[in-house]
Amino acid sequence: MTDNAVSLTEVELRRPHFQLGPIRLEVPKGYVTAIVGPNGSGKSSTFRLILDLIKPDKGNIKLLGQNISEEEDWQTKSKVGYLPELFSPHDDKLKASSKTDFVKKWYADWDVNRYQELLRLFEVDDSIKLGKMSKGMRRKYELALVLSHHPELLLLDEPSSGLDPLAWRTMIDVLHRYMEPGDRTILMASHIVEEVKRLADYIVFMVHGRVLGVYEKDELFGSWHAFYVHGEQVSRKLVQAMPGQCAIEEAGGGMLRVITRKAPDAEAWCGHEGITISHRQALQLDDILAILVEQERARLRS
Protein backbone atom coordinates (compact mmCIF):
# COMPACT_ATOMS: atom_id res chain seq x y z
CA MET A 1 0.00 0.00 0.00
CA THR A 2 2.57 2.59 -1.07
CA ASP A 3 0.25 4.75 -3.21
CA ASN A 4 -2.30 6.14 -0.78
CA ALA A 5 -5.36 8.34 -1.21
CA VAL A 6 -5.40 9.15 2.51
CA SER A 7 -2.68 8.85 5.13
CA LEU A 8 -3.04 9.49 8.85
CA THR A 9 0.19 9.39 10.87
CA GLU A 10 -0.03 9.32 14.68
CA VAL A 11 -3.19 11.45 14.57
CA GLU A 12 -4.84 12.28 17.89
CA LEU A 13 -8.00 14.16 18.76
CA ARG A 14 -8.71 14.78 22.45
CA ARG A 15 -12.08 15.69 23.89
CA PRO A 16 -13.23 15.77 27.55
CA HIS A 17 -14.99 12.40 27.30
CA PHE A 18 -13.33 10.84 24.27
CA GLN A 19 -9.91 10.40 22.69
CA LEU A 20 -9.36 9.41 19.09
CA GLY A 21 -6.04 7.82 18.33
CA PRO A 22 -3.18 7.82 18.02
CA ILE A 23 -4.25 6.58 14.58
CA ARG A 24 -1.94 5.34 11.86
CA LEU A 25 -3.96 4.51 8.76
CA GLU A 26 -3.20 4.33 5.05
CA VAL A 27 -6.05 4.14 2.51
CA PRO A 28 -4.77 2.76 -0.81
CA LYS A 29 -5.71 4.41 -4.09
CA GLY A 30 -7.92 2.49 -6.47
CA TYR A 31 -9.70 0.40 -3.82
CA VAL A 32 -12.69 0.48 -1.50
CA THR A 33 -11.78 0.61 2.19
CA ALA A 34 -14.52 0.19 4.80
CA ILE A 35 -14.25 1.30 8.42
CA VAL A 36 -16.43 -0.78 10.73
CA GLY A 37 -16.98 -0.36 14.44
CA PRO A 38 -19.63 0.30 17.07
CA ASN A 39 -21.30 3.70 17.44
CA GLY A 40 -18.99 6.17 19.13
CA SER A 41 -15.80 4.57 17.82
CA GLY A 42 -14.66 7.74 16.07
CA LYS A 43 -15.54 6.92 12.45
CA SER A 44 -17.32 10.21 11.71
CA SER A 45 -14.66 12.22 13.55
CA THR A 46 -12.04 10.56 11.35
CA PHE A 47 -13.85 11.74 8.22
CA ARG A 48 -14.06 15.28 9.57
CA LEU A 49 -10.35 15.25 10.37
CA ILE A 50 -9.51 14.07 6.85
CA LEU A 51 -11.53 16.95 5.39
CA ASP A 52 -9.96 19.49 7.77
CA LEU A 53 -13.37 20.28 9.26
CA ILE A 54 -11.84 19.74 12.69
CA LYS A 55 -8.19 20.00 13.67
CA PRO A 56 -6.17 17.18 15.23
CA ASP A 57 -4.27 17.79 18.45
CA LYS A 58 -1.33 15.79 17.09
CA GLY A 59 -0.23 14.04 13.94
CA ASN A 60 -0.18 14.53 10.20
CA ILE A 61 -2.89 13.96 7.58
CA LYS A 62 -2.35 13.73 3.84
CA LEU A 63 -5.20 13.82 1.33
CA LEU A 64 -4.42 12.69 -2.24
CA GLY A 65 -0.74 13.19 -1.53
CA GLN A 66 -1.06 16.70 -0.09
CA ASN A 67 -0.91 17.87 3.51
CA ILE A 68 -4.29 19.26 4.48
CA SER A 69 -4.49 22.88 5.68
CA GLU A 70 -1.93 23.96 3.11
CA GLU A 71 -2.60 27.02 0.96
CA GLU A 72 -4.51 26.17 -2.21
CA ASP A 73 -5.74 22.94 -0.61
CA TRP A 74 -9.16 23.69 -2.14
CA GLN A 75 -7.78 22.26 -5.38
CA THR A 76 -7.20 18.96 -3.62
CA LYS A 77 -10.54 19.04 -1.81
CA SER A 78 -12.34 19.70 -5.10
CA LYS A 79 -11.34 16.14 -6.06
CA VAL A 80 -13.23 14.74 -3.07
CA GLY A 81 -16.91 13.85 -2.69
CA TYR A 82 -18.20 13.66 0.89
CA LEU A 83 -21.50 12.13 1.98
CA PRO A 84 -21.98 12.72 5.74
CA GLU A 85 -24.17 10.52 7.91
CA LEU A 86 -26.28 13.51 9.00
CA PHE A 87 -27.24 16.51 6.91
CA SER A 88 -27.36 20.12 8.04
CA PRO A 89 -30.86 21.43 8.88
CA HIS A 90 -29.76 24.83 7.51
CA ASP A 91 -30.51 23.55 4.00
CA ASP A 92 -34.06 22.42 4.77
CA LYS A 93 -35.79 25.47 3.28
CA LEU A 94 -33.84 25.21 0.02
CA LYS A 95 -35.10 23.39 -3.02
CA ALA A 96 -32.67 20.64 -3.97
CA SER A 97 -32.13 22.31 -7.35
CA SER A 98 -31.09 25.54 -5.60
CA LYS A 99 -28.49 23.71 -3.55
CA THR A 100 -27.25 22.07 -6.74
CA ASP A 101 -26.91 25.46 -8.46
CA PHE A 102 -24.76 26.67 -5.58
CA VAL A 103 -22.61 23.54 -5.24
CA LYS A 104 -21.80 23.06 -8.93
CA LYS A 105 -20.06 26.46 -9.11
CA TRP A 106 -17.21 25.05 -7.03
CA TYR A 107 -16.35 22.18 -9.37
CA ALA A 108 -14.72 22.65 -12.76
CA ASP A 109 -15.62 19.06 -13.69
CA TRP A 110 -19.33 19.37 -12.85
CA ASP A 111 -21.29 17.08 -15.20
CA VAL A 112 -24.94 18.08 -15.56
CA ASN A 113 -25.68 15.02 -17.69
CA ARG A 114 -24.34 12.71 -14.99
CA TYR A 115 -26.37 14.59 -12.38
CA GLN A 116 -29.61 14.23 -14.33
CA GLU A 117 -28.84 10.57 -15.03
CA LEU A 118 -28.40 9.86 -11.33
CA LEU A 119 -31.60 11.72 -10.40
CA ARG A 120 -33.52 9.54 -12.87
CA LEU A 121 -31.81 6.40 -11.64
CA PHE A 122 -32.59 7.17 -8.00
CA GLU A 123 -36.05 8.55 -8.85
CA VAL A 124 -35.40 11.91 -7.18
CA ASP A 125 -37.28 15.13 -7.93
CA ASP A 126 -34.90 18.02 -7.23
CA SER A 127 -37.68 20.61 -7.30
CA ILE A 128 -38.69 19.48 -3.79
CA LYS A 129 -37.42 21.35 -0.73
CA LEU A 130 -34.76 19.38 1.12
CA GLY A 131 -36.69 19.59 4.38
CA LYS A 132 -39.70 17.93 2.73
CA MET A 133 -37.71 14.93 1.49
CA SER A 134 -37.77 11.61 3.31
CA LYS A 135 -34.49 10.45 4.81
CA GLY A 136 -33.97 7.99 1.97
CA MET A 137 -34.83 10.55 -0.73
CA ARG A 138 -32.42 13.06 0.79
CA ARG A 139 -29.70 10.42 0.91
CA LYS A 140 -30.19 9.61 -2.79
CA TYR A 141 -30.15 13.28 -3.77
CA GLU A 142 -26.94 13.97 -1.81
CA LEU A 143 -25.26 10.91 -3.32
CA ALA A 144 -26.17 12.12 -6.83
CA LEU A 145 -24.75 15.53 -5.90
CA VAL A 146 -21.36 14.25 -4.70
CA LEU A 147 -20.93 11.93 -7.69
CA SER A 148 -21.68 14.53 -10.35
CA HIS A 149 -18.26 16.19 -10.38
CA HIS A 150 -16.46 12.85 -10.90
CA PRO A 151 -14.49 12.93 -7.64
CA GLU A 152 -11.22 11.06 -7.38
CA LEU A 153 -12.01 10.11 -3.78
CA LEU A 154 -15.38 9.39 -2.17
CA LEU A 155 -15.84 9.62 1.60
CA LEU A 156 -19.11 7.91 2.51
CA ASP A 157 -20.36 7.92 6.11
CA GLU A 158 -23.10 5.28 6.46
CA PRO A 159 -24.09 5.71 2.77
CA SER A 160 -27.16 3.46 2.88
CA SER A 161 -28.76 5.03 5.96
CA GLY A 162 -32.49 5.38 5.24
CA LEU A 163 -32.45 3.56 1.90
CA ASP A 164 -35.04 0.91 1.06
CA PRO A 165 -33.78 -2.43 -0.38
CA LEU A 166 -34.34 -1.41 -4.01
CA ALA A 167 -32.53 1.92 -3.57
CA TRP A 168 -29.76 0.08 -1.71
CA ARG A 169 -29.18 -2.25 -4.66
CA THR A 170 -29.14 0.73 -7.01
CA MET A 171 -26.56 2.45 -4.82
CA ILE A 172 -24.34 -0.63 -4.83
CA ASP A 173 -24.48 -0.76 -8.65
CA VAL A 174 -23.72 2.97 -8.93
CA LEU A 175 -20.68 2.64 -6.65
CA HIS A 176 -19.40 -0.38 -8.56
CA ARG A 177 -19.65 1.64 -11.78
CA TYR A 178 -17.90 4.57 -10.12
CA MET A 179 -14.92 2.31 -9.36
CA GLU A 180 -14.67 0.84 -12.87
CA PRO A 181 -12.00 3.28 -14.21
CA GLY A 182 -9.56 1.81 -11.68
CA ASP A 183 -8.06 5.07 -10.42
CA ARG A 184 -10.79 6.04 -7.96
CA THR A 185 -11.00 5.41 -4.24
CA ILE A 186 -13.79 4.98 -1.70
CA LEU A 187 -13.37 5.28 2.05
CA MET A 188 -16.62 4.39 3.74
CA ALA A 189 -17.98 3.78 7.22
CA SER A 190 -20.74 1.21 7.41
CA HIS A 191 -22.39 -1.16 9.86
CA ILE A 192 -24.20 -3.08 7.09
CA VAL A 193 -22.40 -6.43 6.77
CA GLU A 194 -23.66 -7.20 3.26
CA GLU A 195 -22.68 -3.71 2.10
CA VAL A 196 -19.11 -4.19 3.30
CA LYS A 197 -18.90 -7.66 1.77
CA ARG A 198 -20.14 -6.43 -1.62
CA LEU A 199 -18.05 -3.28 -1.84
CA ALA A 200 -14.93 -3.41 0.30
CA ASP A 201 -11.46 -4.55 -0.71
CA TYR A 202 -9.99 -3.66 2.69
CA ILE A 203 -11.64 -3.58 6.11
CA VAL A 204 -10.54 -1.38 9.02
CA PHE A 205 -11.76 -2.20 12.52
CA MET A 206 -12.11 0.83 14.79
CA VAL A 207 -13.12 0.56 18.46
CA HIS A 208 -12.98 3.21 21.20
CA GLY A 209 -11.06 5.60 18.99
CA ARG A 210 -8.37 3.09 18.05
CA VAL A 211 -7.66 1.25 14.80
CA LEU A 212 -7.39 -2.41 15.79
CA GLY A 213 -6.38 -3.72 12.40
CA VAL A 214 -6.53 -3.35 8.63
CA TYR A 215 -7.33 -6.50 6.66
CA GLU A 216 -7.70 -7.50 3.04
CA LYS A 217 -11.31 -8.72 2.88
CA ASP A 218 -10.82 -12.19 1.42
CA GLU A 219 -7.85 -12.84 3.70
CA LEU A 220 -9.91 -11.73 6.70
CA PHE A 221 -12.78 -14.11 6.02
CA GLY A 222 -10.35 -16.89 5.19
CA SER A 223 -8.48 -16.47 8.47
CA TRP A 224 -11.20 -16.04 11.12
CA HIS A 225 -12.90 -19.39 11.72
CA ALA A 226 -14.57 -21.36 14.49
CA PHE A 227 -13.32 -24.95 14.89
CA TYR A 228 -15.47 -27.52 16.66
CA VAL A 229 -13.54 -30.24 18.49
CA HIS A 230 -14.57 -32.96 20.93
CA GLY A 231 -14.02 -31.88 24.52
CA GLU A 232 -13.48 -35.52 25.54
CA GLN A 233 -10.65 -35.78 23.03
CA VAL A 234 -8.79 -32.60 23.98
CA SER A 235 -8.58 -30.42 27.05
CA ARG A 236 -9.44 -26.73 27.13
CA LYS A 237 -5.84 -26.13 28.26
CA LEU A 238 -4.48 -27.78 25.12
CA VAL A 239 -6.61 -25.81 22.65
CA GLN A 240 -5.58 -22.58 24.36
CA ALA A 241 -2.27 -23.09 22.53
CA MET A 242 -3.98 -23.16 19.12
CA PRO A 243 -2.43 -20.51 16.81
CA GLY A 244 -4.55 -17.35 16.71
CA GLN A 245 -6.89 -18.61 19.45
CA CYS A 246 -9.29 -15.83 20.50
CA ALA A 247 -12.05 -17.60 22.43
CA ILE A 248 -13.09 -21.03 23.65
CA GLU A 249 -16.77 -21.82 24.28
CA GLU A 250 -18.83 -24.83 25.28
CA ALA A 251 -20.86 -25.83 22.23
CA GLY A 252 -23.02 -28.60 23.72
CA GLY A 253 -22.77 -32.32 23.14
CA GLY A 254 -19.31 -32.36 24.64
CA MET A 255 -17.97 -30.09 21.92
CA LEU A 256 -15.69 -27.10 22.25
CA ARG A 257 -15.97 -24.16 19.84
CA VAL A 258 -12.55 -22.62 19.37
CA ILE A 259 -12.29 -19.31 17.52
CA THR A 260 -9.05 -18.55 15.72
CA ARG A 261 -7.86 -15.66 13.59
CA LYS A 262 -5.22 -17.87 11.94
CA ALA A 263 -7.30 -20.66 10.47
CA PRO A 264 -4.67 -22.20 8.12
CA ASP A 265 -2.05 -22.29 10.89
CA ALA A 266 -4.59 -23.58 13.39
CA GLU A 267 -5.67 -26.40 11.06
CA ALA A 268 -2.06 -27.46 10.55
CA TRP A 269 -1.49 -27.32 14.32
CA CYS A 270 -4.52 -29.54 14.94
CA GLY A 271 -3.14 -32.10 12.48
CA HIS A 272 0.22 -32.05 14.24
CA GLU A 273 -1.45 -32.48 17.66
CA GLY A 274 -3.73 -35.25 16.40
CA ILE A 275 -6.88 -33.20 17.05
CA THR A 276 -9.86 -33.97 14.82
CA ILE A 277 -11.85 -30.95 13.65
CA SER A 278 -15.48 -32.08 13.55
CA HIS A 279 -16.75 -28.93 11.89
CA ARG A 280 -15.42 -25.52 10.87
CA GLN A 281 -17.30 -22.30 10.26
CA ALA A 282 -16.12 -19.00 8.75
CA LEU A 283 -16.96 -16.07 11.01
CA GLN A 284 -19.15 -13.23 9.79
CA LEU A 285 -18.04 -9.63 10.00
CA ASP A 286 -20.22 -8.81 13.01
CA ASP A 287 -18.86 -11.89 14.85
CA ILE A 288 -15.29 -10.74 14.27
CA LEU A 289 -16.14 -7.21 15.39
CA ALA A 290 -17.79 -8.50 18.56
CA ILE A 291 -14.64 -10.42 19.48
CA LEU A 292 -12.40 -7.41 18.83
CA VAL A 293 -14.68 -5.16 20.88
CA GLU A 294 -14.57 -7.58 23.81
CA GLN A 295 -10.78 -7.84 23.57
CA GLU A 296 -10.49 -4.05 23.57
CA ARG A 297 -12.79 -3.79 26.60
CA ALA A 298 -10.66 -6.35 28.42
CA ARG A 299 -7.54 -4.35 27.54
CA LEU A 300 -9.10 -1.16 28.92
CA ARG A 301 -10.21 -2.93 32.13
CA SER A 302 -6.68 -4.22 32.70
Rank of each mutant, 00 (worst) to 15 (best):
R236Y: 08
N67W: 09
A34I: 01
D183H: 14
S7Q: 15
N60L: 13
G59M: 08
H208F: 13
G274W: 01
G209A: 06
S161G: 04
S7Y: 11
W269A: 01
K129S: 14
D3V: 15
E152T: 15
T100R: 14
L20W: 08
Y202C: 08
L199V: 02
F227V: 06
R120C: 10
K79G: 04
E194C: 04
I61R: 03
A268D: 13
E249K: 15
K62T: 13
R210T: 13
H149D: 05
W224A: 09
I291W: 01
V293F: 07
N67A: 12
V146C: 03
L153K: 00
G244F: 02
L155E: 02
L153W: 00
K62H: 14
G59W: 02
R177Q: 15
E273F: 11
S45P: 04
D52H: 08
D287H: 09
T2I: 14
E70C: 09
H150Y: 08
E123V: 12
S88K: 07
L51S: 04
V193M: 13
K62V: 06
L25H: 06
G40L: 03
G222P: 04
F87W: 08
Y141W: 09
E267N: 11
M255W: 12
S44G: 09
I192A: 06
Y115H: 15
H17D: 14
G59E: 05
L118H: 07
P159G: 05
Q245F: 09
P56N: 11
S98Q: 13
P84V: 04
P22L: 05
K93H: 11
L86S: 11
V36E: 03
S69N: 13
S278Y: 13
S278C: 11
I23V: 15
K79D: 05
M137I: 10
K55G: 09
R257N: 06
I259F: 06
E180G: 00
H230T: 10
S127D: 15
A189E: 01
P89Q: 03
I128Y: 00
I248R: 01
T100C: 11
Q116C: 10
I54E: 07
R198S: 11
V36R: 01
I35M: 12
T9Q: 14
W110D: 00
A251L: 03
V80M: 07
I128H: 09
E194N: 08
G81K: 07
E250C: 09
A144C: 08
H225G: 05
Q245A: 15
G254T: 07
R120S: 14
P165R: 08
K95T: 08
P181M: 12
E158G: 03
M133D: 07
M242G: 03
D125I: 10
R48T: 05
L143N: 02
R261P: 09
K129M: 12
D164W: 02
R48L: 13
D286P: 00
Q240K: 15
G252V: 01
D164E: 02
G231T: 03
D52T: 02
R261G: 13
L13A: 05
V214P: 00
P89N: 04
V234K: 03
K62E: 15
H272P: 00
V27H: 01
L300N: 08
Y115D: 08
V193L: 11
H279T: 11
A247S: 15
S134E: 10
L143V: 04
